[in-house]
Every structure is written in C-alpha cells, then in structure tokens.
Design a binder for these strands. Structure first.
Lengths: 338, 338
DNA sequence: CTGTTAGCGCCTTCAT
DNA sequence: ATGAAGGCGCTAACAG
C-alpha cells in the first residue's frame, strides 16, 4: 500500500505538500499540485484513516448501541443514524446489547476505545443508573435515543409516548371502552413507562378507575401472552393495547387463543407494531413511531454537541402519528349493550 | 486520557512492560505485574485502539455494506453479522448503499481506508461488474452476501433461491395452478434471477409453457402494483408470487385493488415477505430466508479467509424453509371448474 | 509557496 | 525478567 512518502517521492515534493493538497489546507502552486495529484493516481495512494485519526485525534466516526437489533423499530433507527452519519461523512460503528447491561457495558467500552467522535445509546432495560453518570464523565459526547431519563443532563431523542397513548385512549374511551388490557412489557424501559403514564392519563380523562384496568408487565412474552389470553377468555376487557412489535405479535396470538375476533369481539391497537398495519384484517390501529427520523435527529444533536460541548443539554421528542383503522372502529361496547 | 507512559511512570516500569502485561505477550514477575495492574486501574488507562491498530496493521473490525438497510431481510442479516462479529471480538462498521452503485463505491472506499480486516458486501442492483474484479485486487478479504455471482472467485453466502422457488411451484402446480403472476422486481439482482430460474424450472416440471406466465420485472414498485392489478382484474392468473417484502406489500395492495380475496379468488405466496406471515388473514405461504444465519455465516467465511488467504473460494447456500399456509391451501383452480 | 521535523500511542526487536 | 528505541503514516507547527 502506497504511503504519502511514495507519492511525495514520485512527485518530487515533500510529504507536507502532499498532505496539504490532500486536505486543501494551504495553497499550493497549480503545477506542483497537479504533479502530486497524478502521483496519487499513479501510485493508487489512499489515505490511511487510522494514522490520520491518531494525529488529529478525531476519527470521523460515531458509535450506535441499540438494545435489540432484531426489533424493527431499532433497525429503522439504525437506518436513520447511518444515513445521517453518511451524509456528514461519518462512518457508523454499530453494536447491539441484546437488552443485556453487561454486553452494553462492553460495547460502550469498545466504541470508546475506538475513539468514536460521539456515541448514540438506546440503552438496555436493565442498565444500572450509574452507567449514565459514568458516561457523562467521559469527554466523548453522548446522545440517548428512545429510552430517556428525566433526571440526566444529556442530550436525548425520543417520541411523545405519553401524549400519544393519551390520544389513543381518547379515541377508545370515546367509543365506549371502559376496561382495557394493556400489554406493556418491561416497565423498566422508560418508553414503556411513559406509555403507561399516558394510559393512566387517559383513564383519568375518562373518569375511569385505574384499578379496574388490566396492565401486563414483564419480560417473558410467552407469559404475557398466556396471561392476556386468560384475561380475555374471562371477557374482562373490551380493548387490548400492545406496546411494541413483539407484544403486538403476542397480543394477536392471544386473541387467536381466546378465539376472539377483532373488531367484532374486541378492539385491538398497537404501539409501533407492524410496518404495514393496513394489510392486516382488520387493519390495525397503530401509533407509529418515527424511528428513522429519531435516528437522524440523534445524529443532529450529537453534531451540535460536538460543536458546542458546553451548551445546555436538550431533550427532543418527535411526534408519533395515531393511525386509526378498523381494529378499533367497527366494534364498540355499546353494541353489546344494545 | 491516560497513556501507557502514565501507567509506566506510576508503576515504575518501562512502557514495554506495560504493553506486555496488557497483551500477555511475555512473562512478567507477579509483583511487577500487579503494580502495573493497579496503576492501570488508578489511572483509568484504556488502550488506544487506533494506535494499536496502526502498529499491528490490524483493526479487529469488519465492514458490512448492505444494499437496503430499510428492508427487513437486510436488517436481519446485519443483526447476524453484528452478533457473529461481536462474538469474535470484532467491531462492525455498517454502511448502506441504498441500491446506488456510487454510494456503494464510496462506502467500499471509506471502509477500506478505515482498514477493516474484512468486508462483507450485499451489493447494489446496478453495481458495475468490474467493481468485483477491482475488489478482488485488494488485499482485504471480501465476502459476497445474498447477491452472488456465478463467475467470480470470491467467498459467497446466499440462499437456495432456485430450489426453493421450484419447491414452491411444485406445491402450487400440484394444486392445479397453471397460470402464475410473479412479481419479481429488479431482475439484475442475482437472487431475483435465481428465483426466476426456479420459477421456470417449476413451469417445466409441470409441463407448462413459460410464455403463458406473467412475470413482472422492474424497479418501480408502484408500476408493478398497477400492472399486477390490471392482470388480476382480467383474471389472467390463479396464483401470485411476490419475491420480496416490498413486493409482497405491493402484491397485497394489488389484490385489494382488484377486489380479489385470498385464497377464495386467488392464491398468494411470498418470498421472504413478512416476519409473522401467520398473523395475516389468511396466513401467508412463505419461503423464509435465514437472514440472520446468512449474516453469521458470512462472518465465518470471512474469518476463514483471513486465516487462509489462498484457500479456494467457497460459495455457501443456506436452506430456505417453505412454510405452507392458507393463502395457497384453500383454493385450487379445480374448485372453479367443478 | 514549500520543506523539515516533532510527535500522536502503541508494539516489538534487540539488548541487557 | 525488564528496558531502550525505532517506526507505523500522518498532521501541524516552525522555518525558510
């Protein structure tokens, strides 16, 4: 592999001249420049990013750690991050913690050792709180993605989970629903907790009692499905809300298991469930997360943070759209009473 | 940030000793080692991967370029690559070409400049053939993923597309189907071409005529959908096969557009369509691609190539499972004739 | 407008 | 069992 020395020798100049035409960092006479350029082509020279990064102490790369690369929402966030990074000439280092705080810890360390210019973290569910404070102590800028904290002074990008759930609840309660089954999942995950807050907002808005509601939390999707099926079989709820893609799957299976048809027997809605909720029968009412844009926004905040390390940290929440479809439309409990 | 010099000074040893305890690369007396270890902890020293990589000319990282990070299949391959890489202590650099050969070119260059130890490429549809030969000239090992060549001496990991399609066809022709609509997409994509080959295999197996079949190729999903809807409205086909996730979406929409119900009016099958094809009504017959395993296998081949640069290139094809569901079961053309 | 030179932090051969 | 020192390829003063 040719180095700058080879180029310099062939062009009959010093390596600093080569460096400067490469980076456009000072004027060089047109004809020497062209000599250098043709020498670069002739030798097939390519910059060694490693040496360059070491010297400049800047790698032009960012790291992204997601908690579950298998979930469509995170895949799409990663997509957005990659795009926004590439647009800015940054390379993306991707790691997956698989919801495991140890793996997450290792990933953080690895990426930091690789001297990424910044780090975007969609943290695992069981991350120890002090990780964040440790992270703040690093000089590497960090942006939290999707899973936010209320009490941490870091840049964050999330969605308006609480408000979206409240809007969904307004829709459902307006149709007469009074008893809900919420398949929430891991309540340690902030986005889940936010959605639950929104749920109780909606319960209160409608003058209902929180204790009457069936809220399913836990990390074992199979157990959640069983518990939901049992609840549904008893006819305890008239509407089901699933809070993620895997839980939407679990929810639909529970409906099958309980032999209930949507929307005739029960209403069904999902948070961030499927990419094409309209293709289901019935079409699924869905709160859609702008995952791609969230990823892109995280890169934006990261860049701003790098520019201005001491600016006040910001939390950005993107709007989720509430898409109403047949799964919550055709049926309302009043039908039953009639 | 502490460096080895700081650690060495604090421990009262030379930096070479520090290096050797760090890498376990030669014996050091237990008590000096422990002095070094505690100095490392006290200083919070962390290895600088950049300097290390430069010196060893080995980055412990691999690059992955996918043609469309938005497609679930590629997201899942990326997931598999990440996992397999992390298991081996390798960091993943991810780039997305968005099916654009220029972006792909740039991504390759970028990753090569970052001196990845190896490169996995799911190439774009319109990649110039000479790119591959150029890539072969590089000393960096390359593995082709999903989109293979028959005439290139590189390691490759794909799926048994041709055979899978043939099996799907056997299933359909056994049920009496004679006229098919295949939503193929971009025929320049090798995996698509392989599936078409398998389709014609199946046509021949059943003693049918290829010219009677309706094969839709092209890059504009909207156009494909319209053309399919037109074909279906005329009742020209009794079974539809969609060759990718976006085309499965287009296909289902075309069915809606033509006001045809599956499986009563028409059979529908998809290659690599949705993650949970059983949740659709009716359940969708699907050839499922082992995307995660393909990604992992690519990392495996890459590692072997790095170990043995001169071994004979291999092409690995993973098995796709044919999942039969109601969308091709309940209806058969003989019903109509009866 | 161009060249010389000192490191960035680390690994590794060569001494001791 | 340990140290000294060269150099990986590059950028950025500092000199002319």
């Amino acid at each position: 592999m040719a180095t700058m020395v080879d180029v310099a020798r062939m062009a009959g100049v010093s390596i600093s001249t080569v460096s400067h035409v490469l980076n456009g960092t000072r004027n060089v006479e047109p004809k020497t420049r062209s000599r250098v350029v043709s020498a670069i082509e002739k030798t097939g020279y390519r910059q060694d990013t490693l040496a360059r990064a070491m010297r400049r102490s800047k790698t032009d790369s960012i790291g992204l750690i997601v908690s579950d690369a298998g979930e469509p929402a995170f895949a799409e966030m990663a997509h957005g991050v990659e795009q926004a990074a590439a647009d800015r000439g940054l390379t993306l280092l991707l790691a997956n913690s698989s919801e495991d705080s140890d793996r997450e810890q290792r990933a953080i360390r690895t990426l930091l050792e690789r001297r990424v210019d910044g780090l975007i973290l969609a943290r695992a569910a069981n991350t120890a709180p002090d990780l964040l404070t440790a992270l703040k102590a690093e000089k590497t800028p960090v942006v939290l993605l999707d899973r936010l904290y209320s009490d941490v002074s870091l840049d964050q990008v999330g969605a308006d989970n609480r408000d979206s759930m409240r809007r969904l609840m307004a829709h459902l309660t307006a149709r007469g629903h009074r008893r809900f089954a919420v398949v929430a999942g891991d309540a340690r995950v902030p986005s889940v907790a936010e959605r639950l807050d929104g749920f109780y907002d909606g319960v209160r808005d409608a003058g209902l009692v929180g204790d009457d509601q069936f809220v399913l939390t836990g990390t074992d999707d199979g157990e959640l499905r069983e518990a939901l099926a049992a609840n549904l079989t008893q006819g305890s709820s008239t509407a089901v809300i699933a809070c993620s893609t895997p839980l939407a799957v679990a929810g639909l299976r529970a409906l099958q298991q309980a032999a209930l048809a949507t929307p005739m027997d029960i209403a069904f809605a999902t948070f961030d469930g499927f990419t094409n909720p309209d293709l289901f029968s019935p079409g699924l009412t869905t709160v859609r997360q702008p995952a791609f844009d969230m990823g892109a926004a995280a890169v934006g905040l990261l860049m701003e943070r790098i520019e201005a390390p001491d600016a006040r940290p910001r939390t950005v929440r993107l709007h989720q759209s509430l898409e109403l479809r047949e799964s919550t439309e055709l049926f309302s409990p009043s039908n039953l009473r009639a």
